[in-house]
Amino acid sequence: GTVKVQGITIKVPNPDKAYKIAKKLAKKYNLTVTRKGNTIKVE
């Protein structure tokens, strides 16, 4: 899958794990995490 952070896309082998990490970071930096299948977008 991929993770998008402010325009940066990161390929990740485990979208579930990445999503959990993204959620933690999002809370810390007051961002929104959206997930569509293997693509995770943080904005």
Rank of each mutant, 00 (worst) to 15 (best):
I10L: 06
N38R: 03
L25H: 02
I21F: 12
K4E: 14
R35C: 14
I10H: 02
V33H: 00
I21M: 07
G1T: 06
K27I: 09
I21Y: 09
Q6R: 10
L31S: 02
K27V: 07
T34M: 07
K28G: 03
I40P: 05
K36V: 14
G7H: 07
E43I: 12
E43Q: 12
I10P: 01
V5W: 15
G37N: 05
R35T: 05
K28E: 07
V42K: 11
N30P: 07
L25N: 00
V3H: 05
Y29P: 01
L31F: 09
G1P: 06
G7P: 01
I10S: 01
N30H: 09
K36A: 10
V33G: 00
G7E: 04
E43T: 13
K36W: 10
V12Q: 01
A22Y: 09
T9K: 09
A26Q: 05
A18W: 14
L31E: 01
A22G: 06
P13D: 13
K41A: 07
N14F: 13
Y19C: 11
K17H: 08
P15N: 05
K11S: 12
G37I: 02
I10R: 01
D16K: 09
Q6T: 11
L25Y: 06
G1V: 11
D16V: 07
V33W: 01
K41I: 15
K41Q: 11
A18R: 01
E43G: 11
K36N: 10
T9L: 13
I40G: 02
K28H: 09
P15A: 14
V5A: 04
K41G: 01
K20L: 10
K41R: 09
V33M: 02
K23R: 11
K11C: 15
P13N: 12
I10W: 04
A26R: 06
V33E: 00
N14S: 08
L25V: 03
T39F: 11
N38W: 06
K36Y: 11
K23S: 06
V3W: 09
G7T: 08
I8N: 01
T39I: 11
T39P: 01
I8H: 05
K4D: 10
K11H: 13
I21N: 02
K28Y: 15
E43K: 08
